[in-house]
Design a protein around this nucleic acid. Sequence first.
DNA 1: CTGAAAGCGCTAACAT
DNA 2: ATGTTAGCGCTTTCAG
Lengths: 342, 342
Amino acid sequence: MAGIDEVARMAGVSTATVSRALSGNGHVSAVTRQRVHEAAQHLGYVVSSSASGLATGRTRNVGVVIPFLNRWFYGAVLEGAEHALLAHGYDLTLYNLGGGGDERRAVFEHFLLRKRVDAVLAIALELTDAEVRRLHALGKPIVGIGGTIRGVRTLSIDDHELARVATSHLIELGHRRIGHIGGDADSEMDFHVPSKRRVGYEHALNAAGIRPDPQLFEAADFSIPGGYRAAKRLLGDHRPTAIFASSDEMAIGAMLAARDLGLSVPRDVSVIGVDDHELAEFFGLSTVAQFPALQGRLAVDMLMGMLGDAAEHDEAAHIPLPYELTLRTSTARPSDQGATSA
Amino acid sequence: MAGIDEVARMAGVSTATVSRALSGNGHVSAVTRQRVHEAAQHLGYVVSSSASGLATGRTRNVGVVIPFLNRWFYGAVLEGAEHALLAHGYDLTLYNLGGGGDERRAVFEHFLLRKRVDAVLAIALELTDAEVRRLHALGKPIVGIGGTIRGVRTLSIDDHELARVATSHLIELGHRRIGHIGGDADSEMDFHVPSKRRVGYEHALNAAGIRPDPQLFEAADFSIPGGYRAAKRLLGDHRPTAIFASSDEMAIGAMLAARDLGLSVPRDVSVIGVDDHELAEFFGLSTVAQFPALQGRLAVDMLMGMLGDAAEHDEAAHIPLPYELTLRTSTARPSDQGATSA
DNA sequence: CTGAAAGCGCTAACAT
DNA sequence: ATGTTAGCGCTTTCAG
């Protein structure tokens, strides 16, 4: 593989000039730059990231820590982030922390410290103070997605408001017995998203003069099968006329459960979810859309900004993420029968 | 951040000894090693990958190129690979080539060449000769998953045989009118998986004295909605008593379509897929399981072996991957009526 | 605008 | 078993 000196020789300049011409730092005359680029092109020269990294302390690589790869939401965020990074000329080094505590410790105490990355992007992971401190001690900017983290710039959705919007939609349609499928203890981890959404649901109910009924709540694991089982219980026992599920996958499970119980959606029961999952359209699911790919991109943009200037990056900040009520065919006014059984 | 010389000073040895003690290369007495480890621990020292990479030419990082992140199969392979790499102390740098030709060129002509990775793992991507040559010129081992690549060690499933097994299962149950939902032109790319599976399906039919009927074939995009639409056409027009779908997602779509048409699975129509998708169990879907996480792990093991010895890595080789007929409740003997309408 | 030269932090001969 | 030392390939002062 060609090195910088071969390029320098071929272009008839010094290695310093080659470096300047290729990196864009420092002034180089147009003709020289041109010659250097041609030589580099000709030789297939690409800088060695190790050498460049050692000399500059920057690697053009960001570490992404994420708890799952195989849930739609996470995959979509990752995709958005990876695409944006590539566009900025950055590599993405992936740390999937699904494996539990040991893996997480190894990543934060070893992998992220070996100066392979310039910055870290934490997706749906509530970093501990110790983790943040370690990274900041190395001068590495951090951006988090999905909730607030002390001392870190974060992007997140207003889960409370989003749940309120979804529930209010159901209320406005005339529903009074509105069930909720929220998250279980496992999904409560990190940013307590399930709780926030449940509170938003209850607030909407209260604001409409409806007393939240604990019997109308079921916990699940954010999956289709989980939503299915939860809805079976809910619809079997207490027959709400509408269900707000904290994720589209659970909402889809609920639609399947309704059908298996001989109920028609939305005639017998309305269902609304959260995400705008890739299958939402197929199932005609009304939902509150989040835009995960956009989230990934915004986070990367923020990171790039932080890498640019030498300002203080330890200061926290928080940016709200957009969401949007997206109506399809799974929600409608309640049919007359049973609309007022409470 | 502490450097190697601080550790050396603290342990009262030279930097060379620290390097040896920490890397495990070269002999160091037990007590010295102990002291060095303690000092490193105490100072929170972790080697700089840039410096180490520059000195050794190895980075402990592998590049993974993959066409999608958000399909179950790919996510699962990636998860398996990432987990295995972490266990080996390697980082995983991700290149998602979903964006089309430009991104792919950028990755192969620039990103992968900057010596950030020691090896590359190509998932479901048929590398071109030029791409392989470039990587080999850099001395980077390559392993491919999903099909054979000239000059590269690959792991792949016998798609032909797998389709034969699935179809034979249907035949053995007594089905004669067996439809097939295969891949469309897009999914044909790279390793022609859809064609191979279709041929396997036809071979099974022929072997049983059944003439394959082109009317019983529909193409789709490997998704649930795609499978749904394909099955609607198939079941509406030609009423096969069983369907073999080339992926579980399409098979699930077919089950949903059957239900919407008022057909019961498996009473009116049997359905079998390929993958053992995470939802297969929920839907009671019979399938031919592949084990994507295992595939990722095996590929990493192979890569680690190649990185170990200095042998020739240009020589191709091919390892077959396991699959397994997994029966659930979506396949059964055809009901008497209509079993012999052909 | 360009060149010379001093490192960046570590590893691997080569000595001892 | 351990220390000395010469780079690894680039970037970046510092001169000119």
